[in-house]
Design a protein around this nucleic acid. Sequence first.
DNA 1: GCGAATTTTTACGACATTTTTACGCGGCTG
DNA 2: CAGCCGCGTAAAAATGTCGTAAAAATTCGC
Lengths: 231, 231
Amino acid sequence: MSEQVPRVLVVEDEAQIRHFVRLALEAEGCAVSEAAGVADGLARAGADDPALVVLDLGLPDGDGVDFIRSFRAWSERPVLILSARTEESHKIDALDAGADDYLTKPFGVGELRARVRALMRRRQRQGGASPWLEFGNVRVDFARRQVTRDGEAIHLTPIEYRLLAMLLAHPGQVLTQRKLLAEIWGASYVESSHYLRVYVGHLRQKLEDDPTQPRHFLTETGVGYRFQPDA
Amino acid sequence: MSEQVPRVLVVEDEAQIRHFVRLALEAEGCAVSEAAGVADGLARAGADDPALVVLDLGLPDGDGVDFIRSFRAWSERPVLILSARTEESHKIDALDAGADDYLTKPFGVGELRARVRALMRRRQRQGGASPWLEFGNVRVDFARRQVTRDGEAIHLTPIEYRLLAMLLAHPGQVLTQRKLLAEIWGASYVESSHYLRVYVGHLRQKLEDDPTQPRHFLTETGVGYRFQPDA
DNA sequence: GCGAATTTTTACGACATTTTTACGCGGCTG
DNA sequence: CAGCCGCGTAAAAATGTCGTAAAAATTCGC
């Protein structure tokens, strides 16, 4: 009878606001984790797979819009923006990058909490039909962040999970190495293809029947990788 | 082949704002229906089952919050509130009644459109078929970087694929050797026509019914090569 | 601070692709 | 008709890329 408390990730550099937001979210009955920057936030999001991300746009180590884009490459969780910028163009950019709501500072606790409730409610509404995805003898349940193979739970590390989510989000498509590296490790890692070799290897090891003869995680030499759903 | 245009319902008593919103939504490619009051709006919503409702809170014949509650009794479609009231309590009430977003007047067209896009984004997930190109019994799907022949996947190496893409981009035209070489191998290889002989051979081997009698990848002796779409 | 889990780095054999080389064919020309 | 030239094919050589295992460094939870 686990109470299934939704996890929320707050990405915000100012400690004071972060604390303020944490209190508001905890009052909503959420479990809160925090990150102070873009890189930190993406790593944490990959580890926690939060039900909601509350994101400040004015981060020290990068643009919040970049966070949204990277995050959207492998996750569809709602994102609520907090920002001091009231210009319409900023709102449009953030919403089109994949954000779900945009709240300008200063804002009241009550409105923040109400908007959080609205975003989480929608998740419940459509999360009812647990959208799993199957290939081979593997089932991936994104809502629960759970991967099973022949019914047995398979443990994936944060990076493995993000890579898997990204590949599965584009079935049949070739994802270039540069794109995968940029979305998962960051723009400055686009040349470090050895990371991919290692982690694709992990996925095959854990999810393919015969890791030496992969049927789902295919290599396109010199280009990237392709996820092949069931034949 | 109807394009499946999403229907949006605008519930707003002031004709001027209604028109303004209609224009914004139509610019998003939506089919718009209008209602001027709560009763009218609910009736219209029941008839149309719109993909989104844009709702003004200041209606003459009842409270907008009542509209939301009634609507939510039978529909889970997203609701976007427009309101002149900026008090936090109003926002909280509307969001908790079941609204998904709350926009205070005055607002910009751009922000309205962006928020509409954000609300509608989720429901349209799988666009499915990507544009492809066919000749003979071969199909080329550039979005997925996939080539099939009689339904069977054909593997192409990076150079083979680039050459194919280039030829297919200019159907019926003769592409000179120098141009192909410059584009694929670089400006300093424009004389090395033997590369082309090898790789055009590969394409014919993999894609032509009878590689010795090519029907699509034709040689223009002394000039270059020409891609011939279906006869 | 300590142990466990995870990420990063490194090295090397296996494999895929590209490049190079060689040769046969056929048309054209002198 | 002989020789030259451009083309097509095949296969060897060279290069580059990939997969794997394991060690080193880092992070995380307690």
